[in-house]
Structures are given as structure tokens and as C-alpha cells.
Design a binder for these strands. Structure first.
Length: 291
DNA sequence: AGACTGCCCTGGCGGC
DNA sequence: TGCCGCCAGGGCAGTC
């Protein structure tokens, strides 16, 4: 499940490998579902139109907002819109030689004149690819972009912002951390890790958090993201960087995925609860409920 | 407005 | 060994 550090790692790799090379063709792989023909292109509705937009384009730069990737496109010196990608759970962007055998769940191929291919591979098919025409703002087409809260590694993400945003909310802090409209880019792994590091029980109501707890939480969120970023993302799940290499962060997970194992800090057994349809892992001693 | 729920999707795993 | 059903979860639509 790529979260901010993984998406950022992919972005950096793409900026090293894919810029200023003409896209000469591509392919969108469809498969026949009971519900009909299915593919990963969210926009435009026509696959042909998508591929036509890709042909002849070059990528100027890759950007990231939350967990969204955005490639700025140019054709013959003119702006030609944006290529947007969201990896969701299992999506991967891989920079490969054309003769590389197609992975089973390959959804999109973009062929570059330089003799390389960018492939979007996505086992569970939650991931999405968009083309946004140059005369539209990306958030008009990629509507999720418009709803994103501040970047957690920016100055906008302050203790004061957290206090102002959470002080009247009654829901659990864990579900608030996963809400992309409050903070952009956190997912289940780093939310659980940040709550452990700040000693906060995931079921604590937002409005019950003290200012010192919010300070701890803010610090912990920044720390887990920066630590993971430094290692090139987590080794968990399906994450691979563009060159097909896993990250290095997993060894230091305090609670995520450790239900039934002993807390690395106090030896109590790590527990798991369901919150908003997502599992939350926590240490019942290090993250005692505050009233 | 805020807070829920269910849905999409596939592979891996537990249980029998 | 085989089969069934459950589980993983990001974002979005729908509901109250």
C-alpha cells in the first residue's frame, strides 16, 4: 500500500529516468469482466483518446500531491496537459526494457523513443491513470486532488493546524489521520506507527487530545515519514520503486502488522481493532486510553 | 458539515 | 489435497 514515502520514492525515480523522452506509442490492456470490458484509465473515457494524447508527448517533470503522481507533459514545446497516476493498493510504475516479459497484471504500457517502456502494473485494479488536457486544471478531472488537506512535510502541517482542525471533532484520531482531506498522504501503516510513537490510543476522540499530545503526534507523523523516505519507502506489501526494487523500512515497524507479537518497547502483546473498516494495531500499555 | 457504510478487486491464508 | 470464505485497504458514492 504505497503511502507518501513510497509515492515520493517513485516520483524521484521517474524524474531520474523518464524526462524529455518522446512517447512514441502505448497500449492499454483490457480484460473481460462479468460487468464488461475493464481498464485502468479513469479519463478520458475513450482509450484511443488517451493513447492519442500520449503519442508525441514528453514528460517535463513529475510532481506529487498526497498519494497522487502528476507528470507535466509537453508536445513540440507546448504544454499538452498532465498524466496523473494513483497507485492505490497494489499499483506499480516500472521502467523496463520492451523485451521484459509482461507481468500478469500489466494495465498500461507507454513506449518511449529512447527504447524503454513505462509500465503500470496493478494486481487489484484499484489504481487509476488520467490524462488531463492542457486547458483544464488537474483537480477538475482528478477530483480527489481538490479535496486534499495539507502536505504533512510542509509548513502548513503545524500543531496549530491540528488543534484548529481536530478540537471539535468526535471521531477517533486514527480515522482522522487516514482522512486525506485533513492530511494528505498518510495511510494505514504510517498512521499506526505515528500513533505508537506519540503514545496515543487509536480510538482516542480527536477532541480529547491535549495540545501536548498534538505536539507529539505532529512530531511523530513527520518522523515516520522522513525515516521511511530516507530508506526509500517500506518493504511492506506490493511496493517497488520504478526499477523494481523494494524499500528498506519494514524492519523498524513498531506495531503495524504485529498483532499477537510482543511490543518492542514494553513486552505487552500488540492488539488490533477495526476502525472505519481499517485495522488498527497498537500496544495497550504504551498507548493507554486517555479519558 | 461531519461521520458513517459499502463497494471495488485479487491473491493468500485459515479452517475443515 | 481441495474448497470455501475471509481478509487486506484508498478513495468515492451514498446515506443519515
Amino acid at each position: 500500500m504505497p503511502e507518501l514515502p513510497e509515492v515520493e520514492t517513485v516520483r524521484k525515480g521517474l524524474n531520474q529516468l523518464t524526462l524529455e523522452q518522446e512517447i512514441e506509442g502505448g497500449e492499454v490492456l483490457c480484460d473481460r469482466r462479468p460487468s464488461g470490458l475493464s481498464h485502468s484509465i479513469a479519463h478520458p473515457p475513450s482509450v484511443d483518446e488517451f493513447l492519442q494524447a500520449m503519442r508525441g508527448a514528453r514528460i517535463v517533470q513529475w510532481h506529487r500531491r498526497g498519494k497522487y503522481l502528476l507528470a507535466q507533459l509537453r508536445r513540440k514545446g507546448n504544454a499538452s496537459g498532465w498524466l496523473g497516476v494513483h497507485l492505490r493498493m497494489t499499483g506499480q510504475l516500472l521502467w523496463v526494457a520492451p523485451e521484459e516479459p509482461l507481468a500478469k497484471h500489466t494495465r498500461v504500457r507507454l513506449e518511449f523513443k529512447s527504447g524503454k517502456e513505462l509500465r503500470f502494473v496493478d494486481q487489484r485494479r484499484f489504481g487509476r491513470v488520467w490524462w488531463v488536457p492542457a486547458d483544464l486544471a488537474p483537480e477538475k478531472i482528478m477530483t480527489g486532488l481538490a479535496k486534499l488537506g495539507p502536505e504533512p512535510l510542509s509548513e502548513d502541517f503545524s500543531v496549530e493546524y491540528l488543534r484548529r482542525t481536530l478540537e471539535r471533532r468526535k471521531r477517533a484520531i486514527k480515522t482522522a489521520l487516514l482522512d486525506q482531506s485533513l492530511i494528505a498522504g498518510l495511510g494505514n501503516i504510517y498512521a499506526d506507527e505515528a500513533l505508537f510513537l506519540s503514545g496515543i490510543h487509536p480510538e482516542t476522540r480527536c477532541c480529547d487530545l491535549s495540545v501536548s499530545q498534538l505536539e507529539e503526534l505532529k512530531r511523530a507523523v513527520v518522523q515516520v515519514l522522513e525515516d521511511s523516505l530516507r530508506e526509500g519507502g517500506t518493504t511492506f506489501s506490493h511496493f517497488l520503486n520504478v526499477q523494481g526494487v523494494n524499500g528498506n523500512y519494514a524492519g523498524v515497524a513498531w506495531v503495524y502488522g504485529r498483532r499477537g507479537q510482543l511490543c518492542r518497547r514494553c513486552d505487552k502483546v500488540i492488539e488490533r481493532v477495526k476502525l472505519g473498516g481499517r485495522s488498527s494495531h497498537f500496544c495497550p500499555q504504551c498507548q493507554a486510553i486517555k479519558n
